[in-house]
Design a protein around this nucleic acid. Structure first.
Lengths: 222, 222
DNA sequence: CTGTCAAGTAACCAGTTAGTGCATTAACGG
DNA sequence: CCGTTAATGCACTAACTGGTTACTTGACAG
């Protein structure tokens, strides 16, 4: 998306010429800042002025590129979903041993949530608003469909190999894989209080990951 | 608001005399309205005026009884936690067959979330704020401690009876029981879009409950 | 060099928000 | 009855909010 490409010869400017005006870069900065701010405070709590400041942009730019706070949120959310789906696609679990594939999926989901904490908060925020923004996105549905069928094929291969039991619904499995990681992390603050232990130490995180892998493998085991 | 009630005999009012001024009743109405409004819009999105209106009270009353929006939220949240813990206590799982006890716990958790959808949203909101309100509550910790040890004793009895395996951490189990219900319900809106099926039909809910019971029993099975 | 258009800015606005000051009134003890 | 106290209501504000108007400035084609 960087419009300036190396046009070395003649009058054309050198490639790295720092453009003071760069619509794409500004848009990207706004989206990044918005993601953080929405994740931190939710749609209702986020402040457009704060986003503008964090993005080193003017508030007017936000309305120029995204029309409204809500449409900005929608774009941020859609991007977040596309990011995780693209990352999932890259996992390439289709050629692995079914149990290995499932373990990798649990591990990936966990790591992704850990490294992209905004994702969880954005999804929570969207559900608070009854998913009215996500409804508008067709692309998200496409990616999700491919993802479900990936898990389904893992299950089928496992059944064929005799290591998984029959009749496990891939959607329920998917939900469960997400749930056991997502819940732990999204509720880590109240959880640490209720259970009187720090859920976020390195050891606690590792323990939970292995517990989760175990949970899923036992769930599908023949 | 029907202030006029039968005050049949002399000066002494009958016990049930509907008081026009009733601090406790007003407080209770405010708390109920606040619970709904906070659950619906989150702490940031909730409007004090709306709470006052829904409670058929004046905004001034809210500040009279609860000092600030944030302290109101704190009270609502604390009550919500106490409510679920008290309900859990009433389950009396200690004398049941361990597997039956665990199944009832999963079922209870699920039903409670379904019947008290505000609980989930309040907890989400509190985690968005890094649990800064819950931190102040000692009572919640007390109840939670008792709850964890209840689950622990079920596990121990199961191990002794040879139906559960050894070494399952009761805290991890608790978290998982909550997670598989909580996640499904809190993310029901985005979930219904992503998986292209209505997750809230009677059949879908029943299917999920049984899937969850199955998941937990497989997790602890010897 | 320059005209044009997009990128960028500052100041502003109208509506809303949490929170208050103060007057009023019901309850209740004496 | 009456005086005190707590419950209630109204009207207000100071700060903030999303969104906009009117303007300046840089890039780039011709």
């Amino acid at each position: 998306m960087d419009a300036s490409e190396n046009t070395a010869q003649g009058k054309a400017k050198p490639a790295q010429k720092p453009r003071i005006r760069d619509a794409e870069a500004t848009k990207a900065r706004i989206l990044e800042a918005a993601k953080r701010e929405f994740a931190k405070s939710g749609l209702g709590g986020a402040r457009v002025d704060v986003i503008a400041e964090k993005a080193r942009a003017n508030k007017r730019m936000i309305y120029h590129y995204f029309d409204s706070k809500e449409r900005l949120f929608q774009t941020v959310l859609e991007n977040a979903y596309l990011d995780i789906r693209i990352a999932e696609q890259k996992l390439n679990l289709d050629h692995l041993d079914p149990r290995e594939a499932l373990e990798r999926l649990v591990r990936f989901t966990w790591d992704y949530y850990l490294k992209n904490p905004e994702f969880i908060t954005l999804v929570n925020s969207e559900n608070l608003h009854r998913a009215k923004h996500l409804k508008k996105s067709e692309t998200v549905k496409d990616y999700s469909r491919r993802f479900v069928s990936m898990v389904q094929s893992i299950l089928e291969r496992g059944v064929a190999a005799g290591v998984f039991r029959k009749g496990v619904d891939p959607v329920q499995l998917n939900i469960t894989v997400a749930a056991i990681g997502y819940y732990y992390l999204t509720n880590r603050f109240t959880g640490s209080i209720v259970f009187e232990r720090d859920l976020m130490t390195k050891e606690a995180l590792e323990e939970r990951l292995h517990f989760n892998i175990d949970t899923i493998l036992r769930l599908v085991a023949a």
